[in-house]
Design a protein around this nucleic acid. Structure first.
Length: 580
DNA sequence: GCCGTTTTCGGCCCGACTGTTTTCAGTCG
């Protein structure tokens, strides 16, 4: 059967989401480990596809995707035709709603939640909290007062966490809304603005600016969007809608003549904008979201870009990423804003995975894509032995891989692969690869993947030991945070930065929008301390090589110039830095 | 569930940590 791929087509992300949920539900039911893993693998594969799953299904190529077999293929077919999958629906019926939600609490897995449900009838977070506070949980086998305390603490953290979305998800949704508006016939200028336009790592609202004469033209199509709910409030020129993602969507409607002023205003940040208003006042203007007016009276200045507004105010143009009132307006007044790096400056990626460990694509495919992106070099850094979950490479396989890379390098004149490794910093601070092997590797990224709960002193000591190893080049995702999912491990980042400066080590900005690690604050500290940065995607498939832009945004928000970032360097200069 | 230069069945998955315990089950990455 041919699947129509129109406006209502099921998107790859939705298929992936269903498979992740099937995996969770099966896990909950204690189903076969390998089956569960197969669903997770399929979910990752679908999420990582560059083409629409529906198109691949139609052309019969879906079955060629690794991880997709006959069964998964049939379920994708079901989803594409009916929007549902029987197995998924059945599992949802069998597992009481609310139990999966409990899985988000640390320390609670299927077994314990099952026990809580069976013995205490708990099927929601509220019921769990009540039971914990009534000291009922400690009465169950295998659970004690510490479990109880941990549950109460976990629920507390969950409640304190405001509704926020990681930047990557927010950008995807916002882009979807823009496309949707255009598909719905709103053939107008639509701009994603607010915190997303400033590339803030977490956003609590999706802001869209639409040029339209009449608010009705815009509000009606949005009311039909499947992800959007009720109008939270509306004013003359804007309205806010609830979304199923927990963060509201706010839409501003402006006439064409006010577009640039509205864009400046809605981009914010509020603190930047207020400061800008004060500066405008001092220079004889009155600035608001409708225009820039001479204080002496008269019409708003007609402008055709944001740049023009800043120019009228005798300021350098301030890119959205810098508009956080962190001194950018003084710098813009003095003409001393940094020459921020941009995508065109990036010459390579120094941390990527392949199907030799837990990546989805071959070395050749990753290299080919890097070349298509115009990169000059890339380091293949698969996991080291001990990280079994990621199929870490044995010594022998690692050496084989490096031989393969050397062979591949012979075919290119304009591109070079570096041999590499993402070596685990073990719980005692040793590296998961002997020095004599590390010595022969071009790019050594050292990262923490275990012992996240160790205390601050221990983790810091581990990482310092890695920094002191002469063969280590880059410290990968230095704080281990997963935005919205996992807090950074307790590490003294200042001490890491100081040590990196002393030992001339590179710190990574991990560009994965799930991580953005180091964050911009520490990147600034690193820059102040003279520590060089590498912006790496840590890509596990071709698609995620495109996430470089998120890392670049962190660097820009931290005021970095190309000279601060080693993967903007020419090949020879980079080699010199790696060898120092 | 998927997969196959070990090919249609049998392998794929592992160690550390934690909180509860006297010998380990459950969770996590």
């Amino acid at each position: 059967m041919r699947i129509e791929t129109g406006r209502l087509a099921v998107r790859n992300m939705e298929i992936a989401w269903v498979f992740y949920q099937i995996a969770d539900l099966l896990e909950f039911k204690g189903d076969d480990f390998f089956k569960i893993r197969a669903y997770r693998k399929a979910a990752r594969a679908i999420a990582g596809l560059e083409e629409s799953a529906a198109d691949l299904y139609n052309s019969g190529k879906l079955i060629e995707v690794p991880g997709v077999g006959k069964n998964i293929m049939a379920k994708i077919g079901e989803l594409l035709t009916s929007g549902q999958c029987q197995l998924h629906e059945r599992l949802k019926r069998e597992v009481p709603a609310g139990l999966l939600e409990l899985m988000s609490l640390p320390g609670l897995g299927p077994k314990k939640i099952g026990l809580l449900h069976e013995r205490l009838g708990i099927s929601s977070i509220a019921e769990l909290e009540e039971a914990a506070r009534a000291k009922k949980i400690r009465e169950l086998p295998g659970m004690g007062s510490r479990t109880e305390q941990e549950i109460i603490r976990g629920i507390g953290r969950l409640k304190r966490k405001p509704n926020q979305l990681p930047l990557g998800a927010a950008r995807e949704l916002a882009a979807g809304f823009s496309r949707y508006l255009k598909q719905m016939g709103v053939d107008r200028r639509v701009e994603v603005t607010g915190a997303i336009r400033r590339w803030a790592p977490m956003v609590d609202r999706i802001d869209l600016l639409v040029v339209a004469a009449d608010m009705q033209d815009v509000q009606e199509p949005f009311a039909l969007h499947p992800d959007l709910g009720d109008v939270v409030w509306r004013e003359e020129d804007r309205f806010q809608l609830a979304s199923r993602w927990g963060v509201p969507v706010e839409i501003y409607i402006v006439p064409e003549s006010e577009y640039w002023y509205a864009l400046l205003w809605s981009t914010g940040s509020p603190a930047h904008y207020r400061r800008l208003q004060v500066m405008a006042w001092k220079r004889g203007w009155r600035l608001n979201k409708c225009g820039l007016y001479p204080r002496s009276g008269g019409d708003a200045a007609a402008v055709h870009s944001e740049e023009e507004i800043y120019r009228l105010l005798e300021l350098q143009y301030v890119p959205p990423e810098l508009r956080e009132n962190e001194g950018e307006l003084s710098a813009a007044g003095n003409g001393t804003l940094p020459r921020l790096l941009n995508a065109g400056d990036i010459r390579g990626d120094l941390h990527v995975h392949t199907n030799w460990s837990d990546g989805m694509n071959s070395i050749e495919e990753m290299a080919q894509r890097a070349r298509e992106k115009g990169y000059r070099y890339m380091a293949i850094t698969d996991h080291s032995t001990s990280l079994k979950v990621a199929r870490g490479l044995s010594r022998e396989k690692l050496l084989m891989q490096h031989e393969t890379i050397r062979q591949l390098n012979r075919q290119w004149e304009d591109f070079q692969l570096f041999t590499g490794i993402e070596v685990d910093i073990l719980t005692d601070g040793r590296l998961d690869c002997p020095d004599e092997i590390l010595a022969g590797i071009d790019v050594v990224v050292a990262s923490v993947h275990t012992g996240f709960k160790q205390d601050r002193a221990t983790i810091t000591r581990r990482m310092l030991a890695a920094i002191e190893n002469e063969h280590v080049d880059i410290i990968g995702h230095p704080t281990g945070r997963l935005l919205g999912h996992r807090e950074p491990y307790a590490v003294d980042v200042e001490a890491i930065i100081e040590a990196a400066a002393r030992h001339k080590k590179i710190l990574e900005i991990n560009a994965s929008p799930d991580r953005l690690d180091l964050d911009e604050f520490y990147v600034r500290l690193a820059r102040e301390s003279g520590v060089l940065i590498a912006i790496n995607t840590d890509a596990h498939d071709l698609r995620r090589l495109e996430e470089m832009e998120f890392g670049i945004s962190v660097a820009r928000r931290a005021w970095l110039e190309p000279g601060h970032v080693i993967n903007t360097y020419e090949f020879d200069d980079l080699v010199r830095v790696l060898q120092r």
